[in-house]
Simulated scan of single mutants.
Amino acid sequence: MRLTKKAAGLIAAATLFTVVAPAAAAAASPRSTCYGGRVCLYAGYDYNRGQVDHWRDFVSDDSNFADNNWLNWDFSNSWTSMDNDTSSIRNRIGCSATLWQHPGYTGAHSTFTHNSNDGYLANNAIGNDRASAIDIWCR
């Protein structure tokens, strides 16, 4: 009888850890999901997989990223400027969005259509870590 109670206790403890572990993993997972009606930018390649999870989403134009900081996975401010620091994009806004090299919508640029993803901006005209503005074409 004593062994059975001990075994039951071990099973209960294992069940507790099984339930808690997935919840903790979900809280620390990357913000690779981009909800409808938004354009999501990521500091890392492939939507931050395996990297620091800095991200930001937009619903309208922003002519200068210098006054924006990345958000952390938990939506807190990272205190890291996102100017010239974007490596991947997801577009779920419902229209095209253009990333620009310089503030004020100038310089090299790349346009991304609705429902497009690009996990590697280095192979576009905008390039890696060069975006300073976003122009969303829903007009």
Score class of each variant (00 low, 15 high):
T113Y: 14
M1Y: 15
G107E: 06
R139G: 13
R90W: 07
G9H: 06
Q51H: 10
N77V: 10
T80E: 01
K5Y: 15
C40W: 08
A27D: 12
C138Q: 00
G94R: 05
L99W: 04
M82A: 00
S63G: 15
C40A: 08
A25K: 11
P103G: 04
N69L: 08
I134W: 04
R130H: 10
S116P: 00
A21G: 02
A131Q: 07
K5L: 15
K5G: 14
P22T: 05
G104H: 01
L3S: 09
L16I: 15
N115E: 11
T80K: 13
D61E: 09
A13T: 11
T18R: 12
S76C: 02
I136W: 05
Y42A: 04
S63A: 15
A131T: 05
V20M: 11
A14E: 00
A122R: 12
I136Y: 07
L71H: 09
F17P: 10
F58T: 00
N117C: 05
S116H: 04
W137L: 10
Y45C: 01
A27V: 08
A43S: 15
D67W: 10
L71T: 05
N68F: 08
Y47E: 11
F65P: 07
G9L: 13
P22W: 03
K5D: 15
I93H: 03
D57K: 09
C40D: 05
R139S: 13
